[in-house]
Amino acid sequence: MPSNVEIKARVTNMAELTKRAKELSGTEGELLQQEDTFFFCQNGRLKLRIVQGGQSELIFYNRPDQAGPKLSEFHKTSITDSENLKKALSLALGVRGEVRKTRYLYMVGQTRVHVDQVDNLGNFMELEVNLENGQSPEEGQAIANDLMQKLGVKEQDLLTCAYMDLLLKEKSG
C-alpha cells in the first residue's frame, strides 16, 4: 500500500501560514471544497471524499493517533457515481460523521501542504510527505519536521487525531 508521513496542527495565524506555504511552493495553491463522509469500519478508517468540481475518491487509511509525524498507509479508488456509492455505504456500514472543509493545496517537493478551514472546527494545517519507493518513514519524518519549522508550526499546536474525531468530541462534550 502507498504510505505517507503526516502531521496535523491547529493554526493560530492563517495569513502567515498561507504566506509561507505560497513562498515554499512557488504557487498560489489549489482551492478545493471537500466533503468527507466517514463510515463505520472494523479496521482503519473509510471515507468517501467528494470534491466540488473534481474527482471523488473512496479512501481507506490506517494511521496511529499520536502527536507529531505519523506513518499512514492508504488506498484510494476514483469514484464516478459518488452519491449512489454514499447511499450504498451508508445503508451497509452506517455513517460515523461528515467533515466539510475549504482546503488550499500547496506542493512542496514530495509533500502536500494543506491549509484547511474546517466547518465547525476552525483553521488547521496538514502535511503529507508522500514516501517514495525505498524511502523510510524516518526520512519522511525529517522532511515533515523541516517543513513544520519553515511553516512556523509549533509543537504545542500538533494534533493526535483526525478532524472527524475532533468533531465527534465537540458533539459529545
Rank of each mutant, 00 (worst) to 15 (best):
M1I: 08
S3E: 11
S3D: 09
N4G: 03
V5K: 00
A9E: 01
A9K: 01
V11P: 00
N13P: 04
E16T: 11
E16R: 08
L17Y: 03
K19Q: 12
R20V: 08
A21H: 07
K22D: 09
K22I: 10
E23M: 10
G26V: 03
T27C: 03
E28N: 12
G29P: 02
L31F: 13
L31Q: 11
Q33N: 11
C41E: 11
Q42S: 13
R45F: 11
R45G: 09
R45K: 12
I50C: 15
I50A: 11
Q52T: 09
Q52W: 00
G53S: 06
G54K: 02
S56R: 04
S56T: 02
F60L: 13
P64Q: 08
D65Q: 15
Q66V: 14
Q66E: 12
K70I: 08
K70D: 09
L71G: 11
S72Y: 08
E73A: 15
H75M: 15
K76L: 15
I79F: 05
T80Y: 11
E83P: 04
E83S: 14
K86I: 00
R96L: 15
V99P: 01
V99N: 02
R100F: 04
R100T: 11
R103A: 04
R103L: 07
L105K: 08
L105Q: 05
M107A: 12
V108T: 04
T111Y: 00
V113T: 01
V113Q: 01
H114K: 02
D116V: 03
D116W: 05
N120V: 08
G122Q: 01
M125N: 08
N133V: 15
G134W: 01
G134S: 04
Q135N: 02
Q135A: 03
P137I: 00
E138D: 14
Q141D: 15
Q141R: 13
N145H: 09
D146G: 06
L147D: 00
L151F: 05
L151K: 02
K154R: 14
Q156I: 11
T160W: 04
T160G: 14
C161E: 15
C161Q: 13
Y163S: 07
Y163F: 09
Y163E: 08
M164L: 13
L166S: 04
L166C: 09
K171A: 10
